[in-house]
Amino acid sequence: MNYKQSGVLTGEELRLPDNETLCRGKTIIIECVENIPCDPCETSCPKGAITVGGNICNLPKIDYTKCSGCGLCVAVCPGLAIFMAEKSPKGDWAEITIPYELLPHPKNGERVITMDRSGCDVGTGEIVRVTEFKKVQKSRLIVTVRIPAEDLNMVRHFRIAEGNHEQ
């Protein structure tokens, strides 16, 4: 089953960054595989690290040598298709940054259940950062979850475990 049937990208369609890139620091992952007319990732990047080019339907390309890992594109992408990943150099933990538009708002330190691209549970994680780029996008949180390094390529969503959220 391909992604047009399932709605889920698999290894073949994804060009995930290699281990070396991930261990170097915050790494943008763009899961945008269709030629839709859209370019806010390119126009918002303060470092000029993302290129769509003259044809607005081109797929965005990221230049990791220019990317500072600011996460603005994660907040800006209308398709919620940009994530940010980072692996500890020793490989004992990883962080995935996810655009999030649901209530209740997650809080720092909260334990969450991590989910993959098809909504299946992967494991658990801890919220380590919740930011908002209010100037570019209201009502969208940019949430960083610390997870086991081996879950990094799988986790793209999370839910707050029931009874775990303090109102």
Binding site: G7, G79, G119, R156
Partner: peptide, 19 residues
């Protein structure tokens, strides 16, 4: 096939909604 944009499908699939 899913008729809409993949990014819209991906958002709802990762929340666990089957298509």
């Amino acid at each position: 096939m899913i008729g809409g944009y993949h990014v819209h499908a991906a958002k709802i699939r990762r929340m666990g909604v089957p298509i």
